[in-house]
């Protein structure tokens, strides 16, 4: 897998897994309006994953579904931040806010890519992500003095930094005015490590697809 394709699959996996996690709030979000909004954002993330997998699949001579659903858990390139199952609204919003901040930095770098196709897709995704950021920031503004939210941000900060490649991390630190975590704090959150929650998630996510292997749906 070339460096370019690896980068695309990393982002695709992040978006797919986070989209799945966020969709776990459908029907149980704190208000009906939030239910609709958060589910819609989750769906958008999965839509971004699809577009990225399609791009990677062309380079790899496969298709998007195969990439999304037919790999072993160890082959996923998602960051541990997006894998955790967090049935707590403070953590969910903290993760959402931190992820969107990292994603904005990552997409800005991707928009400058020499590869016109990659740069174009990044620009398209970024336009939709603006609304995710609006949503994430308004919740941050609302919860920023709540101890549960403050604790959740602090707890998730190392995992959030680890979403980004090393060269982009200082931007994240500067933007949120938080010190970069030490290497020992980052251990276990770096890409390549996986949360124990990933395997059960993938089992559930691929359940229907695995029930009739090779079927055309």
């Amino acid at each position: 897998m070339s460096e370019k394709v690896q980068k695309i699959v990393e982002i695709a996996d992040d978006e797919l897994i986070l989209g799945w996690r966020d969709s776990e709030w459908t029907g149980i979000a704190p208000s009906l309006e939030e239910d609709v909004a958060f589910s819609s954002i989750a769906q958008n993330e999965i839509g971004h994953a699809r577009a990225l997998y399609e791009l990677a699949a062309r380079e790899l001579g496969t298709d998007a579904d195969t990439l999304a659903f037919d790999r072993d858990p160890g082959e996923y390139l998602s960051a541990p931040l997006v894998e955790e199952r967090r049935m707590d609204w403070a953590h969910t919003i903290a993760r959402h806010f931190l992820y969107e901040t990292a994603d904005e930095i990552r997409l800005a770098a991707l928009k400058d890519s020499d590869d016109a196709e990659v740069a174009g897709l990044a620009a398209k995704m970024d336009r939709e992500e603006q609304y995710h950021r609006l949503h994430a920031r308004m919740w941050r503004d609302r919860l920023q003095d709540e101890p549960r939210f403050v604790d959740a941000l602090e707890e998730l900060w190392p995992a959030a930094v680890a979403v980004l490649p090393e060269e982009l991390r200082p931007q994240m630190s500067e933007r949120l005015q938080l010190d970069l975590p030490s290497n020992s704090l980052l251990r276990g959150f770096e890409r390549g490590s996986h949360s124990e929650e990933l395997r059960p998630l993938l089992d559930e996510m691929t359940m229907v697809r695995r029930s009739v292997p090779g079927a055309t749906w």
Binding site: S31, L32, E33, E34, V36, A37, S40, I41, Y131, L134, H135, M138, D141, R142
Partner: peptide
């Protein structure tokens, strides 16, 4: 209509709905 705590939330909820 949408129910929201303030104008920013209303904007986001209306956008999605």
């Amino acid at each position: 209509s949408v129910e929201a705590p303030d104008a920013t939330f209303a904007h986001a909820y209306a956008h999605e709905q």
